[in-house]
Structure formats: C-alpha cells, structure tokens
C-alpha cells in the first residue's frame, strides 16, 4: 500500500489486523460449511462402517450407488414433486398475501391498525407445538386432511407474520412522495401497487421467497403428522425410509439429504444479494 497515496494512509498499520479478521471469517465459514462437506463426502462411502470407522477420511471410491438407492427406495422423484408444489404454492401465497397486508398496514389508515400489526406479530412467537392439535381439527373440518393443502395452508399461515412485518417495514421506509408523484401521474391504488410498489419491493419479495422456501422445504413435523398417504409425502419425511429400528442406512440417507439440500442452496445462491438487501432495508438509507 503506497504511503504517498494519501487516501490509503494508515492502512499499512491495520494490515495484520485485517489478515487476522479474514482468517477468523474463514474459520467461521468452515465451521458452517464443514457439516455439509462431511454429508456430501460420506454420501459416497459404501457402508456405515466406512462412515463411522473413518469419519474424516475421503471415500475409497466414488460411486453413485447410494444416490440411485436414495432416489429409488426413498421415492425421491415423487416426493420431490410434492415438495415442489407445497413449497412453490406456499411461497407464492405468502408473498401475495404478505405484500397485500403490508401495503394496507403501511399505506392505508383504518381503525386498530396497530392492533392488527401486533396480532400478526404474535403469530411469530407462537411455538408450533402449541397449535398442532387444534390445527389438526381445523384441517379435518376444512376437509383437506391428508392432502398437500394440509401443508400448504399451515405453511402459508406460519410464514405470513414475518412476511407481513417485512413488507410493512419496507413499504413504510419508501418515501411518501413516490405515492404522491404517482397520484399526480394519474395512478390508481391497484396500479400503484402492481406497477410501482411491487417492482420496487423486489428485495423484500426475494427475501420472503427465500425464507419461506427454506422453511417449507425442510419442514418435518407437520409434514409427518398431517400426511399419512405415502403418495402425498414430502422430501424430509421421505428420508425416514432409511431409518429403521436396528439399522439405519446412513450412506443412502446422507445421499438423499445431499440431494434435497441442492434446491435450498440454489435458492440461496440466486437470492443471496437481494436477501441481504431486504433484511437491512430501512436500517440504512
């Protein structure tokens, strides 16, 4: 670093500190990354003995046999389609209703506005176990028990509070002049929402899509409780097929888990930048 540059003066002093910082970040990244790496490497190993006998070794030979077994025995193909439906529809509904509610809560003036916002907030802090039993009754009453709707509806409801709060915060942070300029341009409410607000809210939409996809794709408890029909099961529940009382087929299980992790990693890779922008929206101008 040139001392004469003026702008960078003082930087050479902080060099060792910045190396240390980088090293610390790399270590932290490794802590998070290693379990995934271990899962992927172990999924190529031939037996439980090879996995647990030499947990840190590389596989003796690379074979896709475990993956074939996982797809066949775990019915990953059919479950993948189910998970795709459940995740896709839930995410779409969460974005749709979350943005509408956020729009109303941020822009419209109506009685008990803060009460409604608080009510949605409560949805975030309720533990799932507290409403599993009444939810079962409700789904039966609606006649959707043991169908994909038995997951889509609760997943949507479960993810809506975060979406509503995020959209409300995002819309509130937008300058009021944007709406006023649109009014003078002759924009009506619906047009304002679809042509201006929603495109501007892309970071918030991406964040909500990513969060909802991760939550619903990996959800296990409700998927196991509400779905009995084998044809309706989702991927995480499908993984149970490899777990038996006395013998769990870990190579196949890890191969299956590796496979079902791919879409979530993809979602994160695609929306990564937007998610960060969405999460810090309103925090910085």
């Amino acid at each position: 670093m040139g001392k004469g540059s003026g702008v960078n003066e003082g930087q050479p002093m902080s060099r060792p500190r910045s190396y240390f910082k980088t090293l610390a970040w790399m270590l932290l990244a490794l802590v998070f990354f290693y379990p995934m790496l271990w899962m992927a490497l172990s999924s190529f190993k031939s037996s439980n003995v090879e996995i647990f006998g030499h947990p840190f070794s590389l596989p003796h030979q690379i074979s896709l046999a475990n993956y074939q077994k996982a797809v066949r025995q775990g019915h990953l193909g059919a479950y993948f389609i189910n998970s795709l439906w459940v995740t896709g529809l839930s995410a779409a509904a969460v974005v749709c209703f979350g943005a509408w509610a956020g729009f109303a809560l941020s822009k419209a003036r109506f009685p008990f506005r803060k009460f409604w916002l608080a009510l949605f907030f409560i949805g975030m802090i309720l533990p799932v176990q507290s409403y599993l039993i009444p939810l079962t009754g409700l789904l039966e009453m609606l006649g959707v028990h043991d169908s994909l709707w038995a997951l889509i509806l609760p997943y949507t409801a479960q993810n809506l509070p975060v979406a509503i709060l995020l959209f409300t915060a995002f819309f509130v942070s937008l300058p009021a002049e944007l709406e006023e300029a649109a009014k003078l341009d002759g924009v009506r409410t619906a047009r304002f929402y679809f042509s201006i607000l929603l495109p501007v809210a892309r970071p918030a939409v991406a964040t909500i899509v990513a969060i909802t996809c991760l939550n619903t794709w990996n959800e296990f408890l409700m998927a196991m409780l509400f779905i009995v029909d084998p044809a309706m099961k989702t991927l995480p529940v499908g993984m149970i097929a490899f777990e038996q009382a006395h013998n769990t087929d870990y190579p196949a299980l890890l191969a299956g888990l590796s496979l079902i992790s791919v879409p979530t990693l993809l979602v994160y890779a695609i929306f990564n930048k937007q998610v960060i922008r969405g999460v810090i929206a309103g925090a910085v101008k």
Partner: peptide
Amino acid sequence: VAMVFQNYALYPH
C-alpha cells in the same frame, strides 16, 4: 398540475 418534489420521487425501477 405537475409537481416536482424535494427528493425527486423518481420511480427507481
């Protein structure tokens, strides 16, 4: 009437 705002209020997208 047309109005010009202090913070421009351009449609960012």
